[in-house]
Every structure is written in structure tokens, then in C-alpha cells.
Design a protein around this nucleic acid. Structure first.
Lengths: 201, 201
DNA sequence: ATATGAACGATACGTTCCGTTTCGTCAAGA
DNA sequence: TCTTGACGAAACGGAACGTATCGTTCATAT
């Protein structure tokens, strides 16, 4: 019984979707991204096939390739649409801020989002376009966390003459490493404590 | 002019390679790993095809699949055969030890080895076997660097009541992050300094 | 001496997925 | 009205996959 990825009884069966003239049909975009997300949820990211996306979205492959010329591009689009964001706290303690950030991110990464992110990192090795967007995304995250460090510096918790991104990068590096090694469940308290402490000798 | 990946004028043209009985022929193993390494050097890791490896090694696909059942397995085998290793120094200063380790690893990763390692990380997302071996490899590296930290603790440079792997993990996490983001060229001095300092407040 | 069993190179096979192309249809804008 | 360009559908050639089959070669056990 080959259930396949078909889904004839889809909720919004808009009969047939046609051209709406000489411009991109937003319904088509939605249908395609929905289909891709569904397939990923079903079969995992490694099981995402362009043909299956087109079939499930009832879209032509030509249409699919017109707007998302590669698997990586499609992957990124799906991820960005559902991208959850960590909220950067301001508890008055760098340790607490770091810890909340790290735990939030770990929680987000446990499950589907982590798989997504890992797949994007993997894809970035062969797709320069994905690599660049990943780099931007990372830089953005890094800067946001660096702002937390800057606040700590302003409070006088840690030396003011250091680059705030340094600590931020160490935090994020730890988390990347844990994610890619499937060790998100291990403790991070000691690490965070070390990174939150003043290190004047 | 389809040059192809053929190489009829290979240095050691042992006529034809045959079975040596009911056991793995080491010549075959060598030929296959050589072929894979050559192809990777030529076309990059993403251009490694099982069929091309078999063709170039003058080996049957069945033989190839018998010993390396997946692309990832083959990749790992090639990598391990050429795996360069960092030497862990003992300069009497944690900062120096860390810095040497990091700079050595960065130098190793600049170029082909970095591509290899990234490809293996990428492959580990879809191949559980590769994932496990990567995890082992990482744990091994981590422990070796933790030994450096332990020596520092014995010298009294840093507190003795902390887990030595904590600092080691932060160092390695930084480097992984840099590798995967194509930012190996950026400075790490400040980071290392921070991780080598005593952090008693 | 001989039979068994396993690895070998070679090759053919069916399958999946790729990315492109062609086709007729449809709607918006000129 | 007529042109333009997006749309779904379908078919295409090609690449690489992983499996199966073949006869050969050799070590080992009988």
C-alpha cells in the first residue's frame, strides 16, 4: 500500500490554481512552502524531494524551479517562514542572561528546528548561496547576544575593554558544537558560569 | 574530448587485480581509497561518486559496496587514512598550550582537511554511522585537550575543582563554529586569553 | 587432489530524482 | 483586442544509485 505523499483531501482544495496573469501567484507560493513543510515533517529533511513538493502542492516543477532554483533555497525559505526567535533577556546578571539564552535556544533546537538548522549547515557546504545566508544569520545572532554582553559591561560586571562579541561567540560556539554532536541534553551550567565570570586575574 | 576520470597510465598498473581467496584483498582497498582521494582532490568532496571511484580503481561496484556500504563510510575511511593530528604541547602555560593547539588546528583545517571535516559533519546529518564515528572522534579530541587543562590545574594556574573538559569544549566549540562559518582566518587571541585565564572573582 | 566458498572485475538492470522543455490555458495590462 | 508571462501537466534525457548475475581466481578444508 503505497500511501505516497499525495494528499487529495487537503483542507484547502482550491479546485485548481491557475495563473493570475503575468505575476507570481501568492497562493502558489503558500501551497509550495506548505507542501515542503509537510513533507519535512513526515519524512525528515533528508527526505525532501523537489518532485514530491511539486506533486503535493499540485504545482508544476517549472514553477517550483522558477522561484526556488535549488533544494537549499527552498529549505531556507521554509525555515525562515517558521523561524522561531530567542528572546534576549535583561535580568541584570550576565550569567542569568546567558543561561536563559542558551536554554531557550537548546529548547528550540530540541526537535524539528534543530534538524532544520543542522540540515542548513550541511547544505551550506555544497550551496554557496545557503552558506552566505547562514553566515548572515549567524552574524545577526552573534550581534544580538553581544548586546547582552555590552549591557553587562555597562553594569561593570566584566571588563569594559574587551570586545563583547568574544564571549558571545564562545557561548554560541558551544551550542553549535553540542547541536552538531547530538549532545544538546548535556549540562552547560559550568560552561556558562565560566563565560559569565569576570576573568581579571 | 571527454577526459573523464579514467587514468589508464596509472603508476602501478598491476595488470589486473584478482581475488586472493576468501578474504579482503589489501591491494583492492588501497586502489579504492587512492581513487577516492584522487577524485576528491580533482573535483572536490561534493563531486565524489561511487561509480567513478569503482571505475577509476578498476574495481567492481559490488566490491566497493561490500566494504564501504555508503558514501559516508568511504569518506571517513579516506579521511582517517590521511588524518593529520595536532600535537598537544606542554609549554607550562595554558594560554600558550591553547593557542598552539588552536593555531595548529586552524592551519590543518585551512585547505583540504577543513573541507573534509566539514563534509563529514554534513554527511553525519544523514548517515547515523558517520554521526557516531564523528562523535567518537570528537570525544577523543576533547579528552586530549582536557588533558592539557588538567596539567594546568596541577600547576595551579586555574581552579582545581572544575571539570577540565569544560574549557576544552569551549575552545573546540569556537573552532568548529569558525570552520563551519568559513571564518577560520579571524583572530582568536582574545578568545583564547579569556579561556586560559583564571576566572575566580 | 579436489571440492567448497568467498572475493574479485565486469556489466546489466530497474529505480529514483534531477533539471529542462514543451504544451495549452488563463488573467492582467497595454 | 492582443501581448505577456505565470500557471499545471507531462514528457524528456541524463546521472547516480544500489542490486543482481556472471565467470574467474584463489585459499582452505577435506
Amino acid at each position: 500500500m503505497t500511501t505516497e505523499t499525495e494528499d487529495p483531501d487537503h483542507k484547502e482544495n482550491k479546485k485548481t490554481r491557475h495563473s493570475i496573469g503575468a505575476k507570481k501567484n501568492p497562493d502558489t507560493e503558500t501551497a509550495i512552502l506548505d507542501a515542503a513543510a509537510d513533507i519535512i515533517a513526515e519524512k525528515g529533511i533528508g527526505g525532501l524531494r523537489m518532485e514530491a513538493v511539486a506533486r503535493k502542492a499540485k504545482a508544476g516543477k517549472a514553477t517550483l524551479y522558477r522561484w526556488w532554483p535549488s533544494r537549499g533555497a527552498l529549505l531556507l525559505a521554509v525555515y525562515q517562514r517558521k523561524k522561531p526567535s530567542v528572546c534576549y533577556r535583561d535580568t541584570g546578571s550576565l550569567y542569568e542572561d546567558f543561561l536563559h539564552f542558551a536554554k531557550d535556544l537548546i529548547e528550540i533546537w530540541q526537535g524539528e528546528n534543530g534538524l532544520f538548522f543542522k540540515a542548513i549547515i550541511a547544505e551550506s557546504q555544497s550551496d554557496p548561496d545557503v552558506a552566505e545566508k547562514l553566515k548572515d544569520y549567524h552574524a545577526e545572532r552573534l550581534e544580538a547576544l553581544a548586546a547582552v554582553v555590552t549591557r553587562s559591561q555597562q553594569r561593570g560586571e566584566i571588563p569594559q575593554n574587551e570586545d563583547p562579541t568574544t564571549r558571545a561567540e564562545l557561548v554560541i560556539g558551544l551550542l553549535w558544537q553540542r547541536l552538531l554532536n547530538n549532545r544538546l541534553d548535556e549540562s552547560i551550567d559550568e560552561h556558562i558560569k565560566m563565560l559569565a565570570n569576570s576573568d581579571e586575574t
